[in-house]
Design a protein around this nucleic acid. Structure first.
Length: 600
RNA sequence: GUGCCUGUAGCUCAGUUGGAUAGAGUGUCGGCCUCCGAAGCCGAAGGUCAUGCGUUCGAGUCGCAUCAGGCACACCA
């Protein structure tokens, strides 16, 4: 389109004063192909009103002047007002569906990201308890992005950082210790502590861990022994260092296993499970710290080591090493990101999905990466808003020590398909409010069934075409309409022209049906573009929307027009359309990690 | 107080880089099973796009202000 317009400067008298470069810039920046909201305006449209400033002509005049010069293969163009509308020929539309139909290419597959190597980190929960619904949102979002990017030709590595190093793991171990004491009737849970603020995890899974630990007799004896020896000391010292270390590892392993199993069940794939403790033990953290020091971006104050993050856009300088010599969480995270930047794959983008509660963190990490000499453009942070729970009409924030709705509970209640579809069908920018009392509505009224039903329906039609027909009242059998081999042969040999004749010509006297069929074809054709968009703007919800739109078109078409009609050739042509639709719908659902059942 | 996100139909939410008449599901009301699954289809009602000003030929979309809600502002992780 742009290419066609570039030589047309001479068409307008007022434009002679412009240089070719100026004209070029105007056209390139001004011309945008868009899809009109109303189909009577064509399949695609270009608004040329912006040329009025340069040509000193009214937009409709410009449009009609340009029109004769626009001969674009596969399209017919018309000028209305300030718009030039393009209508694709049916043959060209059907042509683009052939690769999907014939199985030479997956629906929507494209190369828009073929030069990208993407690293995606998401979920990254603490191994101190089960995953909750909020984690589920990141899992659904991240995993869908992985699928979409891959469909766009990118190489993607997904990674989960296991935060198994900090204070929260000690709290976890202590919690198990307390539960063990409670079970042995040595102390109540929680143990009241004077003047000490002590965090502990109250969940039943902690008790389970303690009980499991106590099943070994020598463990029971050890705990009893330690308690008797050191019972009078301060609370944190109750459990000996060795025991705490052991309980930490046991808890970490058990919780990690729990999370891994659940994420697998949630069809969320991670290539790498990175232990934070490993970053410390292997010296990665120290190495990054040394590099920061050598870059001269650190300074000492009040006995702590700081990074001058304000010099690269942060609003405060941050502590890296506390005055007691231990590292802050930031230090470990900076090291982790530094490590990701340094990996052999040399990722084009390093993407993180964070909850909105971490947004204050963006400038710090970005600043640190810049200080380390990395291109901050390569770091992409997707901030997702949180999931709030509504319990008995009141909002509560979800958190480990507050009201919790585990992802497992939700899956049990509504199933993986409904949960994933529901979580991923709204934009990451909007806060989700989940009414626990209406949890079933996330199930019964879930639009995922609407779209799954469309898929099952399409499969049903294909089944009917190849199966014997049994009269339910008389029990009489008549032979199947088609046999599979003939259909496959027909499919293999079909051309866009022949398909168009059989599919659309019969509807020429019936504009309503004709438009329904055409609409459906057009939507099928636009799938690739939608997959590209969803990948470009990191928005899987566009795919969810698409699946619903396509389902709606199909249900409507189904009601208006019988696929297995009397004319066998026409029926075959319609079956082909149903086939493409089935494949496209299944692909859309797969990009969201949702199954496409053949019957329901 | 400062920063980020949000405010669109009764409810839950779409609306990609500004474009032609504002979109869907759900709910409400009214129709449709003598042919491929009614988990469906067809139709109706329902809107000051939070409010005001601005930029533009053109604003739900961009800017500023106000109001309302969410989140964050540690030598915690």
């Amino acid at each position: 389109m742009i290419h066609t317009l570039l030589p047309l400067k001479a068409t307008f008298d007022a434009c002679h004063a412009l240089s070719d470069d100026e004209w070029h810039t105007i056209i390139v920046q001004g011309i945008k192909m868009e899809q009109p909201k109303h189909r009577e305006h064509g399949d695609y449209a270009v608004n040329i009103s912006f040329l009025a400033r340069y040509t000193k002509l009214a937009p409709p005049v410009i449009a009609t002047t340009l029109l004769p010069h626009l001969n674009i293969q596969g399209f017919t163009a018309t000028a209305i007002g300030g718009f030039i509308n393009f209508k694709a020929t049916e043959t060209s539309l059907l042509e683009t569906l052939l690769p999907t139909l014939k199985g030479t290419q997956q629906a929507g597959q494209n190369t828009s990201k073929q030069n990208e190597r993407l690293h995606l980190e998401f979920v990254s929960a603490n191994p101190t308890g089960p995953l909750h619904l909020g984690h589920g949102r990141w899992a659904a979002l991240g995993d869908s992005l992985r699928r979409i990017w891959q469909h766009n030709g990118a190489k993607v590595v997904t990674e989960f950082l296991v935060n198994d190093y900090g204070q929260q793991m000690t709290n976890m171990a202590n919690s198990v210790w307390f539960r063990a004491l409670e079970h042995l009737k040595l102390a109540p849970f929680p143990i009241p502590v004077e003047g000490e603020k002590f965090l502990y995890y109250p969940g039943a899974y902690v008790t389970d861990l303690a009980l499991e630990y106590l099943e070994e007799d020598h463990n029971t004896q050890a705990i009893t022994h330690i308690f008797e020896q050191e019972g009078a000391k301060r609370l944190e010292q109750l459990a000996s260092k060795e025991l705490l270390f052991e309980l930490r590892n046991i808890s970490r392993n058990a919780m990690l296993q729990l999370q891994q199993d659940l994420l697998k069940r949630f069809r969320t794939h991670f290539d790498i499970w990175q232990l934070e403790s490993h970053l410390h033990l292997s010296g990665v953290v120290e190495k990054t710290l040394d590099r920061l020091k050598s870059k001269g971006v650190t300074f000492e104050e009040d006995g702590a080591l700081w990074i001058k993050s304000t010099e690269v856009g942060d609003d405060k300088d941050r502590v890296l090493v506390k005055s007691d010599g231990s590292y802050t969480y930031l230090t470990a995270d900076v090291a982790y990101h530094d490590d990701k930047f340094n990996r052999a794959e040399h990722f084009t983008s390093i993407v993180n999905i964070w909850g909105a509660d971490h947004h204050g963190y963006v400038s710090r990490i970005t600043a640190a990466m810049q200080a380390l000499g990395h291109d901050p453009q390569r770091l992409v942070i997707i901030l997702g808003q949180l999931v709030n729970l509504v319990v008995e009409g009141e909002k509560t924030r979800m958190g480990k020590r507050k009201t919790m709705l585990t992802l497992e509970d939700v899956i049990e209640e509504v199933g993986v398909d409904a949960a994933r579809f529901w979580l991923v069908s709204r934009s990451a920018d909007s806060t989700i409010e989940f009414d626990v009392d209406l949890a079933t509505s996330a199930s019964d009224e879930n639009p995922v069934f609407y779209t799954q039903y469309a898929h099952a329906r399409a499969c049903g039609i294909l089944r009917n075409a190849f199966n014997k027909i049994v009269d339910l009242e008389t029990g009489e059998e008549s032979p199947a309409r088609f046999n599979k081999k003939d259909y496959e042969a027909f499919k293999k040999g079909i051309t866009a022209e022949a398909w168009e004749t059989l599919l659309l010509k019969p509807f020429e006297g019936n504009p309503q049906a004709y438009n329904k069929v055409r609409e459906t074809i057009l939507l099928l054709v636009s799938f690739t573009e939608r997959v590209e968009d969803a990948g470009r703007v990191n928005a899987p919800h566009l795919i969810a929307r698409y699946a619903l739109d396509l389902s709606s078109d199909f249900h409507s078409l189904y009601a208006a027009c019988r696929v297995l009609c009397d004319d066998p050739q026409e029926a075959l042509a319609r079956l082909l359309l149903v086939d493409v639709l089935r494949l496209t719908l299944a692909q859309a659902l797969d990009l969201l990690g949702v199954t496409a059942p053949e019957q329901m």
